[in-house]
């Protein structure tokens, strides 16, 4: 049994079919590759064939997935039949820094935990609050409020067999000046951390020293590369910076950016990391190609260091 298992954070946009019963006929309607990206049956088979045994659900997909499958349990069973297990779901803890939003933020987090349990997942990677633009800079009290919400959700999650992992975006109101303050203000028994390798690097953290420092808090990863580490405040604090106007990409497949991912794997070995490594392909024009490129890089460059 390897120490690391691999999953994909789901960045497929809406997938309209469960399974296409008339695939050849559907293909011949227009003879394009649309048929290859229109049902969960094939998406999950692509994952399974490329050795990604887990999937992290995106909450924005629930409104499509649930009516399509009827329930989280049905989706989980459908995925399992194709060799993929649901490991968890992402969650955005909107406005958790706002004291008057405490009850709603906790309620929303608990509901997300309940959904994850129904999917059979055990991880809830959680963005601690919304974008910096419009809400930052946060006061010390607001950071503490954020930590209070995370602890409260973390308690509920732990009681239900789910690990919540803080997941910071480079444009979040929790940002370089208060990133570590938030982590250290949360209860390590209840609140873990999901390292998004590119996001924290763009934010200005040094990936290797960050992992080395917080290795015992790390529950899982969003592994992706970037060629844009250490962006200035003017970028990180701007309005809607995630999708650039000119198509510039923040995120690349592992090995196509500039991060020291081999160094990270050496540290994973040093600390004996065991668990899920989620891969994230946001920004990719071709998720299947990204998945295959990633598998090649994992097998030839990273797994020989630590598996």
């Amino acid at each position: 049994m390897p120490n690391i298992r691999y999953a994909n954070m789901c960045h497929w946009k809406a997938v309209p079919y469960r399974e296409i019963p008339n695939f050849r006929e559907f293909y011949y309607e227009d003879k394009t590759n649309t048929a290859y990206y229109s049902d969960w049956d094939k998406i999950l088979k692509y994952q399974s064939a490329l050795g990604f045994d887990g999937i992290e659900i995106a909450p924005w997909d629930l409104a499509d997935i649930l009516p399509l499958f009827g329930s989280p349990e049905n989706f989980a069973a459908f995925a399992k039949d194709r060799g993929v297990e649901v490991i968890g779901m992402f969650h955005g803890a909107h406005a958790s820094h706002a004291a008057d939003h405490f009850d709603e933020a906790v309620k929303s987090g608990r509901e997300a935990v309940d959904t994850i349990v129904k999917f059979g997942g055990t991880y809830m990677n959680t963005c601690p609050t919304q974008n910096y633009f419009g809400s930052g800079p946060l006061t010390r009290e607001e950071v503490q409020q954020c930590a209070k919400v995370m602890n409260e959700i973390g308690l509920y999650a732990t009681d239900h067999g789910v690990k919540i992992g803080l997941h910071n975006e480079f444009f979040c109101a929790i940002n370089l000046p208060n990133h570590r303050e938030l982590i250290e203000s949360t209860d390590p028994k209840l609140v873990h951390y999901c390292i998004d390798t590119a996001q924290i690097s763009i934010m200005g953290e040094d990936l290797l020293s960050f992992y080395d420092t917080y290795h015992d808090r790390i529950s899982t990863f969003h592994l992706k590369d970037t060629a844009s580490a250490r962006q200035p405040d003017s970028v990180r604090y701007s309005q809607d910076p995630e999708i650039t106007d000119d198509g510039t990409r923040w995120f690349w497949e592992p090995g196509l950016g500039e991060l020291d991912l081999k160094g990270l794997y050496a540290l994973l070995k040093k600390h004996g990391f065991k668990g899920w490594m989620g891969i994230e392909y946001d920004g990719s024009p071709d998720l299947l190609a990204s998945m295959a490129l990633t598998r090649y890089y994992l097998d030839n460059e990273l797994r020989p260091i630590y598996d």
């Binding site: 497929w12 809406a14 309209p16 229109s38 998406i43 106007d245 198509g247 071709d286």
Partner: peptide, 16 residues
């Protein structure tokens, strides 16, 4: 804008 297909990510950028 909403359904999966290769290259659809460009639809989210202003330049497109």
């Amino acid at each position: 804008r909403h359904y999966q297909e290769p290259n659809r990510n460009r639809y989210e950028s202003k330049y497109f």
